[in-house]
Amino acid sequence: MALITINTGYLKTKSGIMKIIEIICVVCAFGLLRMSTHVCGHTRDSHYLGIGVLVAALMVTPLLLISYMMGKMQIQNTYLEIALNAMFCIFLVAVGADALKAVGTVYTNNYNRKCFAMGIFSIIASITYLLDTVFCVMVYRGNN
Rank of each mutant, 00 (worst) to 15 (best):
L33Q: 10
R34A: 11
M35P: 10
T37E: 12
T37P: 04
T37M: 10
T37Q: 11
T37G: 12
V39Q: 13
G41E: 04
T43P: 00
R44F: 12
S46R: 07
S46T: 10
H47N: 11
H47D: 08
H47L: 05
Y48I: 08
Y48E: 14
L49I: 05
L49S: 08
L49W: 05
G50Q: 04
I51L: 10
I51C: 02
G52L: 03
G52V: 14
G52M: 05
L54P: 02
L54H: 03
V55Y: 10
A56W: 02
A56N: 02
A56T: 06
A56F: 00
A57V: 07
L58S: 14
L58H: 07
M59L: 15
M59E: 15
V60R: 04
V60L: 11
P62R: 02
L63S: 15
L63Q: 11
L64D: 05
L64E: 09
L64I: 13
L65W: 03
I66P: 03
I66G: 03
I66S: 06
Y68I: 02
Y68N: 08
M69L: 11
M69K: 04
M70K: 12
M70A: 09
M70F: 15
K72D: 09
T78C: 09
T78R: 07
T78G: 10
Y79V: 11
Y79N: 09
L80S: 15
L80N: 06
L80I: 13
E81Q: 11
E81I: 13
I82F: 07
I82T: 02
A83K: 13
L84R: 00
L84W: 04
N85W: 00
N85G: 01
A86P: 00
A86S: 09
M87G: 08
M87H: 03
M87F: 14
M87N: 04
F88T: 01
F88V: 02
F88H: 02
F88G: 00
C89N: 07
C89E: 03
C89K: 01
C89F: 14
I90V: 15
I90A: 11
F91E: 00
F91N: 01
V93K: 01
V93G: 00
A94F: 05
A94K: 00
G96R: 06
G96Y: 05
D98L: 13
D98S: 14
D98C: 12
A99N: 07
L100C: 07
K101L: 12
V103D: 05
V103G: 02
G104P: 15
G104V: 04
T105V: 11
T105H: 15
Y107C: 11
Y107P: 04
Y107G: 12
Y107R: 09
T108S: 13
N110G: 00
N110V: 13
N110I: 11
Y111W: 14
N112W: 08
N112K: 06
N112D: 15
N112R: 08
R113L: 10
R113G: 13
K114E: 02
K114D: 02
F116Y: 14
F116T: 01
A117P: 01
A117T: 03
M118V: 03
M118Y: 06
M118D: 09
F121M: 09
F121S: 01
S122D: 09
I123E: 06
I123Q: 05
I123H: 09
I123C: 12
A125H: 01
A125F: 03
A125N: 01
S126M: 04
I127Y: 00
I127Q: 00
I127P: 01
I127A: 07
